[in-house]
Design a protein around this nucleic acid. Structure first.
Length: 526
DNA sequence: TTGTGTTTTATTGCCTCC
DNA sequence: GGAGGCAATAAAACACAA
């Protein structure tokens, strides 16, 4: 298969000139192109050249493919817009596009068409509904090649993520291209929520915002309940001990405004709460969701590993195994192919639109981190749980090596993955331009998904057990370790990477403690 | 096996921008 | 005027039902 793909690629180059009979792109080429397209809808000439070189295609073919791909996207978005329009009219629910914050920029049908957008803007934003379209299509493509795309595993396939690394150095954990969810050993990952794409129908506008609406409703109820609402109250059916006399004597003056802090002193200083109170507008849907999620998880600070769904866990582990390979490649060969741009920092900081939507995501993640750090110190002081501290270190090193082991900015970004939605989203809120609004909505969606999974898992872990926080942490830790071991066994690539990283860690400056390096090794599987 | 519909690829012409 | 992008079109490849 591998040989045939390469052969076919070579054949493409030669035979395309000889006869005009069209050649289908190999699955690996398609995967690479799709991946790249998700990052850069309008690749520069250099990018095209490199892509062409990597994929064994001509630049013309690359250009043509991207052109057609954009057309395809546009077509799909039109269809979707029509479908959504119908749905929205019939349901009368909040429009999906833009999810509130980005509505002005993405909600109008006018913007459903690339033609009305600055191409650069389109690229850097990603049109709002783009992910779904691409996901849908890549999904279809995967069906189109039932023999398993990753089974090709030829050089082009290798170069796909590789190229992505080179040009974007970003990985959105919630990107929905199935191609990225293929495991390094060629097996399809276990079903996960993202697999819902498989259901064939894209989520309608209503379905997509339904969860948000529910959270908003919960928040509303919560505010109505005021002090009576206990975030971390006992499970239903548990009887309370009688309160001691005077138990309510020392309430804050305005408890109605501080239901959370009453319920959970840990949160009283939370900037999230502050922000939630400050933000009664549309965005409060997310804010309140974050708050809810965080409250549920107030004892879980630092134990985010266990809160990952195993499928996602596997996904991330698989992706990282591949990424690590690519990252190392990028270190010795392609760190700066394009002078003046496309280095990682450049991609991050380039605000001209060349950088993909990841830029914004990353910056968000970076900013998110700070709030989380702040909260972490809070919870740490309250919990005095050494496991938590250890996990924090572990997570840091894990993220450092698992995601981005080069760039400090990337490290920060990686922190975001484990971080909870934080106040910095709100605290750093300044008058947003269109791009930021659209981005904000998207980020909120991402965070919501993470939060959903996390909250669910948290509940699962403590369900009916009444565990003390330490026990919870231990349980979670054990779960994480188990999953890590499982993933090492399951993924030979990850195992190989593990050994390689271990070697490279041995060469690291002595400032890295042994503990950290040890954690790093196991964290690879994250 | 065949016919039909869909998707993908290649080509060409036009338009816009620099 | 050249480069890049979009749109239209043709044709090959593919999926699927009869």
């Amino acid at each position: 298969m591998e040989e045939s793909s390469e052969l076919q690629s070579e054949e493409n180059k030669v035979s395309n000139e000889k006869n005009k009979k069209r050649k289908l792109k190999t699955p690996a080429q398609l995967k690479a192109l799709e991946d790249f397209y998700n990052e850069h809808k309008y690749p520069t000439e250099e990018m095209k050249l490199v892509l062409a070189e990597e994929l064994g295609l001509t630049e013309k073919q690359i250009s043509g493919w991207f052109c057609h791909r954009r057309l395809k996207d546009k077509r799909l978005m039109k269809d979707e817009a029509v479908a959504n329009g119908r749905q929205d009219r019939s349901s009368g629910v909040i429009q999906d596009r833009g999810s509130g914050l980005g509505q002005d920029s993405c909600g109008s049908s006018k913007h459903a068409d690339h033609r009305y957008l600055d191409p650069k803007e389109v690229e850097s934003h990603g049109l709002y509904n783009h992910e779904l379209s691409v996901a849908d299509m890549t999904h279809r493509r995967r069906n189109h090649y039932p023999e398993n795309v990753s089974g090709v595993d030829d050089t082009s396939s290798e170069s796909s993520s590789f190229l992505q690394e080179r040009f974007s150095q970003g990985q959105d954990p919630y990107d929905m291209e199935p191609s990225r969810h293929l495991t390094p050993n060629g097996a399809l990952p276990p079903l996960n929520p993202k697999g819902a794409v498989k259901m064939g129908h894209k989520p309608s506008g209503y379905l997509k915002v339904k969860g948000e609406i529910e959270h908003a409703a919960i928040t509303a109820v919560r505010k109505q309940l005021g002090r009576h609402y206990l975030e971390d109250g006992p499970l239903l059916g548990i009887e309370f001990d009688p309160l001691p006399p005077g138990a309510f004597e020392c309430q804050t003056a305005d408890t109605a405004n501080e239901p959370y802090s009453v319920a959970n002193p840990l949160l009283s200083n939370s900037p999230e709460i502050f922000a939630a109170k400050r933000q009664p507008s549309l965005s409060s849907r997310y804010d309140s969701y974050y708050t809810k999620f965080r409250s549920q998880d107030s004892h879980m600070e630092g134990a985010d590993f266990g809160s990952l769904h195993e499928s996602d866990f596997q996904d991330k582990q698989d992706k990282k195994a591949c990424q690590n390979i690519k990252q190392r490649q990028s270190l010795y060969g392609y760190t700066n192919n394009f002078p003046g741009r496309n280095t990682f920092p450049d991609l991050y900081e380039d605000s001209t639109g060349e950088a993909s939507a990841y830029n914004s995501n990353k910056s968000h993640r970076m900013s998110t981190k700070h709030g989380v750090e702040g909260m972490r110190s809070d919870s740490a002081s309250n919990h005095s749980d050494h496991y938590e501290e250890k996990l924090t270190v572990k997570q840091k090193t894990l993220m450092l090596h698992g995601y981005d082991n080069i760039n400090p900015k990337n490290i920060q970004r990686s922190e975001h993955v484990k971080s909870k939605p934080s106040s910095s989203i709100h605290n750093s809120r300044v008058p947003m331009d269109t791009e930021e609004r659209g981005l904000s909505a998207r980020m909120a969606k991402e965070e919501m998904f993470k939060g959903n999974r996390k909250a669910k898992n948290t509940y699962c872990d403590v369900e009916g057990a009444g565990m003390l926080s330490n026990e919870i942490m231990v349980a979670k830790r054990a779960k994480v370790d188990m999953l890590q071991q499982y993933n090492v066994k399951k993924s030979p690539v990850a195992e190989m990477e593990l050994k390689k990283i271990q070697r490279s860690v041995a060469e690291m400056p002595s400032s890295f403690s042994e503990d950290e390096t040890a954690d790093t090794s196991s964290s690879l599987d994250y």
